[in-house]
Design a binder for these strands. Structure first.
Length: 572
RNA sequence: UGUCCGAUGGUGUAACGGCAGCACUGCAGAUUUUGGUUCUGUAAGUCCAGGUUCGAAUCCUGGUCGGACAACCA
């Protein structure tokens, strides 16, 4: 039996609660057994990893249960929305690997239908034109613990409502002077049922309908009806809309929608440690130039993660692993990093790059000899090809890979000790040369064992450590952008009195260094994923040119030596 | 002193009245020409108090704690 078959028979052992509902609905043949979801972003910002979870959920569910998923832009507020955002959202959804086919919709496509629905509500006496100012409406709404007051315009005759509403649409009133309100219950314990606004007058051009409309429907009035128009069966959203559900249902009831009735289901949004996720805060980081735009590799935006070097596969895996539930959560960013490494380990090419070089000279190696060493492009790939790495007498190695006076567990190079140069020879440290003034090591002198060449090793030697290197004469200079978490604290929103989340920013979240790579680094192009061996995964930044390659550090390799060091430092 | 929602190891998430499992993280070990990967082992949990039941994480009652809701934002 295939794994899939197994899942189907033992399925209800691991379904999330939304899938439970879907199974139940399928079982009851609700909506003729159709599953149709939608991803409904507002085009007023860039998508982030939290949206990615929602995208994976909506498109994933549709796929799993043989349904469809629409992309719908919830574009009912022309003041904050733009095509720039529409375009970025489309790019991001596509990049994540999802296809909305021909179903690219806009709430603004339905402005006319919504207007007609609203006329219907007015005729039924379920909506009225209110002439109070925004402030007055707020003041009469009451509080969660006190009922509101009814508007003086609440019981105006249907005919008058119709006339006024039409005039509102025709642009006869200034912005903000009148609204259309649903007539529900000003004393409802649910604030959203206290005669919510359905339309407001906004004399602002819309990025799609331009100047056709000067009244715009609100979210509550738009969303459920758009779901209905699109034949959506399961309208999945985040928890803060839970209190809106009675209103969502009320509108459908008043419109007497019984067939193909959509249903709203809420789940808990994703939060990540060491990250902020609200659009407002992300916008603030961009506008204050704390980061270099929405796609700064430190941003949790999809475009940021893409530029950082995350693969869509790893983000999908992550979305799967975080689960779906209704309780508030903060996912450890280590899980995201784990998913990233897991995938990159399988697909990334390898290269040796020295970040913080010190010169190593092999005294018994011929002065002008160059050997071509062979390295696997990706040792995890059984069909991997080889790459050629030139080896010479004078090399760069990592300064951290040498210690003059090492602790016991140090497996790397130190005076009198042996180590393997990866893909090449075993060497032994004979002496060091220091700068007289600073005491800084300028050269490490070694001897090599000619019988120890990789692949044809007859030396019989066993060494504990293997280090990477680059031939000085062949080294390719490159720029490495070492990204780290943007914030110093797990939950940046927890701050002292009078401070805000920005006080938790880590000033060292980006370090730019010049590094020296083996010749193959020249061949990587924008977006290429490469593991700098023993260091981390990197991705070529779009700012790169042929002469000047820039590599963004996506994530470091796990580093158990660093842990040992940390522990030793603590003890000391 | 409202309404709604939620509460299971450090973090997530399962268990649908019948052995509290999985993943990440941590720790220990094996393997390793990446201190990577892989593999093995290990630590750590049902918010509290009652009740129903042969049996409760699960059902009931009461509490505690956390979150959402008072835009003409979504």
């Amino acid at each position: 039996m295939s794994d899939k078959g197994k899942n189907e028979t033992s399925s209800h052992t691991s379904l999330n609660f939304i899938e439970e509902i879907i199974r139940e609905d399928l079982h009851n043949n609700r909506n003729d057994g159709r599953i149709h979801t939608r991803f409904p972003p507002e085009p007023n910002g860039y998508l982030h990893i939290g949206h990615a979870k929602s995208i994976c959920l909506n498109f994933g569910l549709a796929k799993k249960y043989g349904g469809k998923c629409n992309l719908r832009f919830d574009d009912t507020n022309p003041m904050t929305e733009s095509v720039e955002y529409v375009d970025s959202i489309k790019e991001d959804v596509r990049w994540l690997g999802f296809d909305w086919e021909e179903r690219e919709f806009y709430a603004s496509d339905y402005f006319h239908a919504l207007f007609d629905f609203a006329i219907g509500l007015i005729k039924k006496g379920k909506a009225y034109v209110c002439e109070m100012s925004g402030e007055e409406i707020a003041n009469t709404r009451g509080t969660p613990t006190r009922p509101g007051k009814e508007s003086p315009w609440r019981n105006r005759p249907v005919k008058e409502n119709l006339e006024l509403f039409n005039k509102m649409r025709d642009g006869e009133f200034p912005g903000g002077t009148k609204v259309l309100r649903a007539k529900i219950d000003m004393s409802s314990p649910n604030m959203h049922m206290r005669d919510p606004v359905m339309y407001r007058i906004l004399h602002a051009p819309h990025h799609r309908t331009e100047n056709k409309w000067c009244i715009y429907p609100t979210y509550d009035w738009t969303h459920g009806q758009s779901d209905y128009i699109e034949n959506i069966t399961h309208s999945i959203c985040t928890l803060e809309f839970e209190v809106h559900r009675p209103l969502y249902d009320w509108f459908l009831d008043v419109l007497e929608i019984t067939e193909n009735r959509p249903r709203q289901i809420e789940f808990a949004r994703l939060n990540l440690t060491y990250t902020v996720m609200s659009k407002r805060k992300l916008l603030e980081l961009v506008e204050n130039k704390i980061v270099n735009g929405w796609d700064d590799p430190r941003m949790p935006t999809i475009s940021g993660l893409r530029r950082r070097g995350y693969s869509p596969e790893s983000i999908r895996t992550f979305s799967e692993k975080v689960g779906v539930a209704k309780r508030e959560n903060i996912i450890d960013v280590a899980l995201l990093e784990h998913c990233c490494r897991e995938h990159l380990n399988k697909i990334a090419s390898r290269a040796m790059v020295v970040m913080n070089p010190v010169k190593l000279i092999i005294d018994n190696y011929p002065d002008d000899k160059t050997e071509e060493m062979a390295g696997k492009i990706n040792p995890e790939d059984p069909d991997t090809l080889l790459r050629i790495i030139p080896f010479t007498k004078t090399l760069y190695i990592e300064r951290d890979d040498f210690m003059e006076d090492p602790p016991k567990k140090f497996f790397r190079l130190s005076p009198g000790k042996e180590v393997r140069l990866k893909y090449a020879y075993i060497i032994k440290c004979e002496s060091v040369v220091k700068d007289h003034e600073t005491g800084k090591i300028t050269e490490i002198h070694c001897t090599y064992d000619p019988g120890s060449r990789s692949g044809q090793d007859i030396s019989n030697k066993k060494v504990k450590g293997t280090i990477h290197w680059v031939s000085v004469d062949h080294a390719v200079k490159l720029e490495a952008r070492l990204y780290d978490r943007l914030f110093k604290t797990e939950n940046p929103d927890i701050v002292e009195e009078g401070k805000d989340f920005k006080s938790n920013l880590d000033p060292d979240s980006l370090k730019i260094v010049e590094a020296f790579g083996e010749p193959s680094v020249k061949d990587f192009t924008t977006g290429s994923k490469v593991q700098f061996e023993r260091n981390g995964y990197y991705s070529v930044d779009p700012d790169s040119t042929n002469e000047h390659k820039i590599f963004n550090r996506t994530v470091t390799l796990r580093d158990s030596w660093a842990k040992v060091l940390k522990k030793m430092n603590k003890q000391a």
